[in-house]
């Protein structure tokens, strides 16, 4: 069974982003970039399915700037077999919209014929939470989003999903799209020997033009601002003082 895992290059989880003063966006110059954490979970899940003998080949795909090679090398070091980089822009400030990403992935799915796509549920830059669902829609495939457990059996995936108020289990016929939530697994650290090995694994470059996908944005970001900042309040020295303040000053209890 073949799996495609899309991975996105985003500002590292630990970086506190800065909004540019002119409202044109967030500062991406000299900022540490990494693989989107949910995509790391997706790669890890694919690798575990391969280690169990269920998956035979893992193809990692990244769409965006050429620098996304870095995250593909990480995916290869984690255990993906080969990688495809779709060169979609040369501007690091241009976020390729989920609809365009889903169309590019759908084209690659036609060519690669995987049985399963495992994606992260959300990218931590645009926070849209859309690509997996959009891809499933375009392909006419079933979807199981926000997965915390995946079992593959008899041409189906049995997926436990994180939903509001608890968990839901669904069975989705393959081929399908699954999106990974936080508790699906804990991604492994990549070891130096695996990083070295990853350098020898195939990384193919494709272009949006050659795949014949229109990536013209549908949304225009006219302004990016900082949210209103809260100011720090007062220190209280005891539980009694806290209760007194909440009661008489804030009036919330």
């Amino acid at each position: 069974m073949k799996v495609i895992v899309p991975v996105k290059r985003v500002v590292d989880y630990n970086v506190k982003v800065r909004v540019r003063a002119d409202g044109s966006g967030v500062e991406l110059t000299n900022v540490k970039m990494s693989m989107n954490p949910f995509d790391e979970i997706a790669v890890e899940e694919a690798v575990r399915l391969k280690e169990k003998g269920i998956v035979s080949e893992i193809v990692a795909v990244s769409i965006g700037v050429k620098q996304a090679q870095d995250v593909l090398r990480t995916a290869l070091a984690m255990g993906a077999d080969r990688a495809i980089l779709v060169d979609a822009t040369s501007d690091v400030n241009q976020d390729i919209e989920p609809l365009a990403v889903a169309k590019i992935l759908a084209r690659l799915v036609e060519q690669e014929q995987p049985d399963l796509v495992i994606a992260g549920k959300q990218a931590i830059d645009n926070d849209l939470n859309a690509t997996g669902q959009m891809l499933a829609g375009l392909l006419g495939w079933g979807q199981a989003t926000f997965a915390s457990e995946i079992k593959i059996a008899d041409g189906s995936a049995i997926v436990t999903r994180e939903v509001d108020g608890g968990l839901q289990t669904v069975r989705v016929s393959l081929p399908a799209v699954i999106t990974a939530d936080l508790r699906l697994n804990e991604p492994r650290y990549v070891s130096l020997p695996n990083i070295m090995k990853a350098k020898k694994k195939p990384l193919e470059e494709r272009t949006v033009a050659e795949l014949d996908i229109d990536t013209t944005p549908r949304l225009k970001v006219v302004r990016t601002i900082e949210p209103p900042q809260r100011s720090a309040g007062v220190r209280v020295s005891s539980v009694d003082e806290l209760i007194e303040k909440l009661k008489n000053e804030a009036g919330v209890i």
Binding site: V11, K16, V17, V19, V26, I124, D125, N126, D127, L219, K220, V221, V222, R223, T224, I225, E226, P227
Partner: peptide
């Protein structure tokens, strides 16, 4: 976007 560290007008 960015965990609420920026607000976009779209």
């Amino acid at each position: 976007v960015y965990a609420g560290n920026a607000i976009q007008t779209v």
